[in-house]
């Protein structure tokens, strides 16, 4: 990663969140839909959020990817249920927005 430039990983995460969320919403054949949903709902937001934390321990950093993904999705989906606005499509959109926002924040950190 070069100082002052946004890293490729940040760009890739943000773009993947947008593309895969569209693919998940449109619908894919059986195994692909499951993989895409897991990526959009858990792994990508988890990775994007974990990268904001600057965790020194690599093992802890890797563990935080699913942890943050599951935890954030739990908060988002539970809040949607309480507000009676839940749909899995809304959760997909919300999680991809969270991923993109986390990537934007990371990009801002990388630029400074």
């Amino acid at each position: 990663m070069n100082r002052g430039r946004v890293s490729r990983l940040t760009l890739a995460l943000g773009l993947a969140a947008v593309v895969l969320s569209v693919a998940a919403l449109v619908g894919l054949p059986a195994p692909l839909q499951a993989l895409t949903a897991a990526a959009v709902l858990v792994l990508l937001p988890g990775q994007a959020l974990a990268r904001l934390l600057h965790v020194a321990d690599r093992a802890l950093g890797a563990l935080l990817v699913p942890v943050l993904g599951f935890a954030t999705l739990t908060v988002v989906s539970t809040a949607m249920f309480y507000l009676a606005v839940w749909s899995w499509q809304a959760c997909v959109v919300a999680m991809s927005v969270i991923t993109v926002l986390a990537c934007l924040e990371r990009a801002r950190q990388e630029e400074t």
């Binding site: 858990v42 999705l73 989906s77 249920f81 499509q89």
Partner: peptide, 26 residues
């Protein structure tokens, strides 16, 4: 698409089930 806490105890601690519902449906 709603949480009714009067159904039973599970609907008073719905976090895991909300997560599960989302993952299964998506």
């Amino acid at each position: 698409q709603d949480i009714n806490p009067d159904i039973d105890a599970y609907f008073n601690w719905p976090g895991f089930f909300a997560l599960l519902a989302t993952l299964l449906r998506a």
